[in-house]
């Protein structure tokens, strides 16, 4: 085989290999939604975050507006401090409500932002005051059973 022909094929091979890596990164992976700049931080304290993980999406009206950047446990307030990175395109009012929701019955957990009506917007590093914890299934079942038990007592005609 001629040298130039071989060089051509090897060049093509190397380019195809690097192209494959790029496709993996861009099409299959999440290299595209990394936004190191153009985002601001919001902090929220949650009583219970359930199964929320770092890099979970932050959604508002179902649209992904950011990602969870960090989760810490605070020993002062004994709750979870969730830091979120939100795209600067999306500004939220001061009285925005943050709650931890689950997509579907078995889906992943995410932070849902419900904008309020305040004129002022949340700034970088500010804290979301109104939060709603994740729904823990065990708590819910416990409460349900407790309600059922007390219901029966109330409706019992003999007492």
């Amino acid at each position: 085989m001629q040298r130039t022909m071989m060089d051509f094929w090897v060049g093509l091979f190397v380019m195809a290999g690097i192209g494959a890596l790029l496709i993996l990164g861009l099409k299959a992976g999440n290299l595209t939604d990394f936004q190191p700049e153009g985002s601001y931080r919001l902090v929220g304290n949650f009583e219970n975050i359930g199964g929320l993980k770092v890099r979970a999406p932050v959604k508002s009206a179902g649209v992904v507006v950011g990602r969870v950047a960090d989760i810490q446990f605070s020993t002062q307030t004994y709750d979870a401090v969730v830091t979120m990175k939100v795209d600067t395109h999306y500004q939220f009012p001061k009285d925005t409500f943050a709650s931890i929701l689950t997509s579907g019955l078995l889906g992943e957990q995410y932070v849902g932002l419900l904008p309020g009506g305040d004129e002022e917007m949340l700034k970088d590093g500010e804290k979301i005051m109104k939060t709603n914890s994740a729904i823990v299934l065990e708590d819910m079942i416990g409460r349900f059973l407790f309600d059922k038990a007390s219901e029966k007592k109330d409706t019992d005609p003999k007492i």
Binding site: L21, L24, G25, K27, A28, G29, N30, L31, T32, D33, F34, R55, P57
Partner: peptide, 14 residues
């Protein structure tokens, strides 16, 4: 594609 993209991490997986 979207579920794939949200699950595959560039550093961790690729």
């Amino acid at each position: 594609w979207s579920q794939m993209q949200s699950a595959v991490d560039f550093r961790y997986d690729i």
